[in-house]
Design a protein around this nucleic acid. Structure first.
Lengths: 339, 339
DNA sequence: ATTCCTATTGACAACGTTGTCATTTGGGTA
DNA sequence: TACCCAAATGACAACGTTGTCAATAGGAAT
């Protein structure tokens, strides 16, 4: 490993001068700078982060604590978004994947302290982080795609209420009146919010919200749920006055509706319109006709989390805003206008 | 941050004694050990990795350079597998996501050097790493899910040949004779190997391999490809003596075949058997009937890569084995026996 | 009691960097 | 020429840890 000392010796200047050049300190004569820079490149000098860190106290590493990556495909985009934003600041991500194991999480918090990470993004699905706050970790923490009920930390989450509104509004505007709804597990926060959004859309349009057409697409506990949307959709579609459209809680449910329609010989969108949520493109782009859905903006959530982190370091401890990231409609071919 | 010095002062012993206890050095009197350990816990001491690293020269961080995470869903499982194996050694993963940008990759190599990562896992899809070897990085490198043509590094890759064999053998054994094949881009290594495996299966069974039933499911260049499997499947299935089964290069293609079958009013598996590859469970578990497919063992690849890394550090530079990880058949409901 | 040996403990330097402060250099001004 | 000031450079300490080696203590052997 090439050190400042070696470069300095080779260039015939002091260690400190080389250090200054590496750190773009203007107080160096241009000629000296050029001369030394040649040596730096030639010897392929790379500053030792460990030494820097020891001297300065804060690293350029951001910790990302997550169980989301394990549980949801494409939640990787949170990572990508964060990294994209981080790249500018020459910071890097240390990813800790807990798979939901609290013991493992505790170990990773210790690890973050040991590495002196500058800040932490805590990304999780569904459940609220309980063990948060406990770890005596004093650097900024921002929650991504989740939030802690106790508060105390900024969080960046998708605007599920608006997302639900978008789904319902889109179909209502296109003349659908009998709309089936296949939801996520109703205990999930996202599910509640989207339901609220949909009802708001019905209300505005002046259409009666028909509870009978609302069913849950999963059974079982949240950690061990089983898809039953196929059966649910089949029973919905077999009925005499079947819905003309079905709104789904995610694209997986939508896929099951596609299969149910196929099973019953109904074509999409001629006989049935289908709307998804998430925009998992392995599904939405691969089915035929392509799925109209509402996107879960993971990339933007990750990016925004980093942005919040930058702000967080300059705010007071009490600062804990909730940033809602919009869920854009992705219009494809699975919904037809009835007019 | 609590330091050894502070703990030592509090416990009334020397810094070195505390250090010994933290590092499980047996040369400490049990009473001293117990006494100090109480203080360690009470003060919540965590050793400073930066200082350790500076002293010792090697970190406990493993770098993971990848574009795979960006391009393929569930390739995250490589990360999870690696982490699971790493956990034992109390090492952690520093993930560098290149999105395929060579400039960014070069920057990350520098970063790895700066962080003095102990070793690197290089995970990529499709293309061979060209810039590899260039970065003067002297720690062990293992390639995951890819390999460098120049050799020089151990690699862990799925056994695509055997995977292709498995696909064909499964259908042949169940009496299928007219088997359609919708492949990945034929320039991809995986595609070539699987083709070879399938032909081997046909050969062994003594069935003629009908080239006319083999079509590519994508158009366009590898970096910007477009799914056309739906159209391909429709044309295949419209023909008078249509295939009784279709083997797909991945589950996305299989999903398109499902949609094509639905479009033509054919039911799966009664009128058509479908076999996928990858086992993306957002598809394979969500379609109805559930998809019989061959799994891409990402988790195991990640795990194995770490295992190879451990071995690599004790091997000579020339050591560069290729480890083939089997692709297990996942039998579900999309294939029927003709007998 | 003295000596010796081993078990235990401690003092100190070093890792590579940067902050602080002192020193040198060079050029302009009186 | 002498002087002064700012710009440029350097010497040194410190960050927290561990390796090396020295010092101490305590017990056994004489």
């Amino acid at each position: 490993m090439v050190t400042l000392r070696e470069v300095a010796k080779r260039a015939g200047v002091s260690i400190k001068t080389v250090s200054r050049i590496v750190n773009d300190d203007p107080a160096v004569r241009p000629e000296t700078r050029d001369a030394v820079q040649t040596f730096l490149k030639e010897m392929n000098y790379v500053p030792d982060q460990a030494a820097r860190l020891m001297r300065s106290g804060t690293s350029n590493i951001i910790g990302l604590m997550t169980d989301a990556v394990a549980t949801t495909p494409y939640s990787v985009d949170i990572v990508r978004g964060a990294q994209a934003e981080l790249k500018r600041g020459h910071k890097t991500l240390l990813i800790a994947n807990t798979d939901g194991d609290p013991e493992l999480e505790a170990e990773y918090w210790r690890m973050f302290r040991a590495q002196k990470v500058a800040a932490v993004i805590y990304a999780a699905m569904y459940h609220r982080p309980q063990s948060m706050g406990k770890p005596d970790f004093n650097e900024p923490i921002v929650l991504a795609n989740c939030f802690s009920k106790e508060g105390g930390h900024a969080s960046v989450i998708p605007d599920d209420e608006a997302g639900g509104f978008t789904q319902a509004e889109y179909l209502l505007k296109r003349g659908h009146r009998r709309i089936g709804i296949i939801t996520l597990n109703p205990t999930i926060e996202a599910s509640i919010l989207r339901g609220r959004g949909m009802r708001r859309a019905f209300g505005i349009t002046g259409v009666h919200y028909n509870e009978d057409l609302e069913r849950v697409g999963y059974t079982g506990s949240i950690t061990d749920e089983k898809l039953i949307a196929f059966d649910v959709a089949v029973s919905m579609l077999k009925s005499a006055n079947r819905p003309t459209a079905i709104i789904c809680g995610n694209d997986k449910l939508a896929l099951q509706v596609y299969c149910a329609a196929a099973h019953l010989g109904l074509s999409i969108p001629a006989d049935l319109s289908v709307m998804g949520f998430d925009d998992l493109n392995v599904i939405s782009e691969c089915v035929w006709p392509k799925l109209t859905t509402v996107a879960l903006p993971y990339f933007e959530i990750g990016r925004m989390a980093v942005e919040m982190l930058n702000i967080a370091s300059e705010e007071k401890p009490g600062w804990a805003p909730k940033v809602l990231v919009p869920c854009p409609l992705v219009e494809r071919d699975s919904c037809r206008a009835l007019v």
